[in-house]
């Protein structure tokens, strides 16, 4: 029996979305502009974490390739606006399309495997993207990356951009919520629990996994496009493994399969990253140690561990 407040929020997305809208909506009034930009980053990465969470929590497939899909969108948006001189809005659409297309190619291969092999394959595919971005200097600028052309006038103001991000992320949170609670999402959960049973019931499990992967790629692409507008710079570090790892860690810390936990996970990681970076450049080490500790002590996520510690029912 789920009777905690979080469980209630899970079942009524609108109340949860309203809560998010109020918290994040009031933030710019209360905190400094620097802190607002941190909140902006949190929102973007929460969307990335949710895209990973849909696969990890609802389809039982842990992806380490979504950071690369995210980054491809960022690359395309920046390349389009800076080197082609195109409109940023068209750039965003192209970026999301490119991310979705890449995800579809990944998905064609990934549906053939599950478990650890799925993780290895998405890892390898993501790293191929990284390798290409690093070496294809004539297009990606290699290690130096590409600087963006700035945001369009309407959202040039950080506060205006923040609200646009908030609106976009909330909209997609609702879309993702609908997605995982649709009959399609239920089928995904069936596949997670027993793929062979779903197959013998007549469900096209491969088609479902393909679509699920591709659609989550679209979500990651939206986050990547927002990140392009936010960061105005892209380099191979945007597509590197650490990006996927951070996204996954956010989803895990928030609790896999909770969606809204992604916001908590993203906030925790990004606040910590900002905090740690003030004192030391050893963020990768902290990230690695956090990963190790999470795996050993709290695989259900920090929220799950807390719940266990406090004796709450799941």
């Amino acid at each position: 029996m789920m009777r905690s407040a979080t469980a209630l929020a899970l079942r009524s997305p609108l109340s949860f979305l309203a809560l998010l809208a109020v918290i994040f909506g009031l933030l710019p009034l209360l905190v400094s502009s620097y802190q607002t930009s941190v909140a902006n980053e949190i929102l973007i990465f929460a969307l990335l974490a949710m895209s990973i969470d849909v696969l990890a929590g609802y389809a039982g497939r842990t992806s380490l390739g979504h950071g690369a899909i995210f980054g491809i969108s960022t690359y395309v948006v920046i390349y389009w606006t800076t080197l082609m001189g195109g409109s940023p809005w068209v750039g965003c659409i192209l970026g999301i399309a490119a991310a979705t297309l890449t995800a579809a190619v990944f998905a064609l291969l990934a549906v053939r495997v599950s478990g650890v092999y799925f993780l290895l394959l998405t890892l390898a595919l993501g790293m191929i993207v990284w390798g290409v971005c690093l070496r294809w200097t004539s297009v990606t600028g290699g290690e130096n990356g590409i600087r963006g052309a700035g945001r369009p006038d309407v959202i040039a103001d950080p506060i205006a951009f923040y609200y646009m991000t908030l609106a976009t992320v909330l909209f997609f949170t609702l879309v993702i919520w609908r997605f995982v609670h649709s009959p399609f999402g239920l089928t995904l959960r069936g596949i997670r629990d027993s793929e062979s049973r779903m197959r013998s019931l007549g469900y096209g499990t491969a088609t479902h996994m393909f679509l699920a992967f591709t659609i989550t790629g679209l979500f990651a692409g939206v986050a990547g496009a927002l990140y392009a507008l936010f960061n105005d710079f892209v380099s191979p570090s945007t597509v590197q493994l650490a990006q996927s790892v951070e996204g996954l860690l956010m989803a895990i810390i928030g609790g896999v399969g909770t969606l809204f936990g992604s916001f908590i996970g993203a906030a925790a990681i990004i606040l910590l990253e900002n905090f740690v970076s003030q004192y030391t450049a050893r963020w990768p080490m902290v990230l690695g140690l956090m990963f190790i500790c999470t795996m050993i002590f709290a695989p259900q996520g920090v929220l799950g561990a807390l719940r266990k510690l406090m004796g709450w029912k799941q």
Binding site: L64, V116, L248, P284, M285, G288, F291, I292, M295, I296
Partner: peptide, 29 residues
């Protein structure tokens, strides 16, 4: 490290990934 997560394949893999980050950064230091 791995002895604490023995038998949980996914946790094992992700743990070694964390180790990779730490080792790499340690080498950089």
């Amino acid at each position: 490290l791995l002895r604490f997560v023995r038998g949980f394949v996914l946790r094992e893999v992700l743990l070694t990934l964390g180790v990779a980050f730490v080792l790499n950064d340690l080498a950089l230091v």
